[in-house]
Amino acid sequence: MSEHLNFHYNVDGENFVSAGQASVQVKKNLRELGLPPEVIRRVSIAMYEGEINMVIHADGGVADVDVYEDKIVITLDDRGPGIKDVALAMQEGYSTATDSVRSLGFGAGMGLPNMKRYTDDMRIDTTVGVGTKITMTINF
């Protein structure tokens, strides 16, 4: 079936407090679709980490969750600074977050590694000075 569902969210870059809202809404929708709890949790974590990243590093962006009958594709698109060294950014514990962000409890350097861990496939398209697009797939 070529039909699929799309959930679209604007992630507000100004607002730490509302960061994570999209992942809560995605969870609600996926529960209604009857997906297994484990899949819902993986999507929710990947989505949450991605959302936080966009707020911390890129002043927000857009998030799309596309649901197919056998997989979910999460696309996070921002017009932020881009990632200089993707391999380094993928290392656990590496973070370029500022001290003020860390003081809020974010910036532990686990965002990208967690996104990779909880998804079956992750692709990062990034250009310094232009932005970053991350595409994650979860199969079921």
């Binding site: 079936m1 039909e3 699929h4 569902l5 609600k28 529960r31 209604e32 679709l33 009857g34 009958e69």
Partner: peptide
């Protein structure tokens, strides 16, 4: 899964 729309994924979608 009490909030599930239907038993079939296709139908739920």
């Amino acid at each position: 899964p009490i909030t599930r729309l239907s038993d079939s994924m296709g139908q739920s979608m």
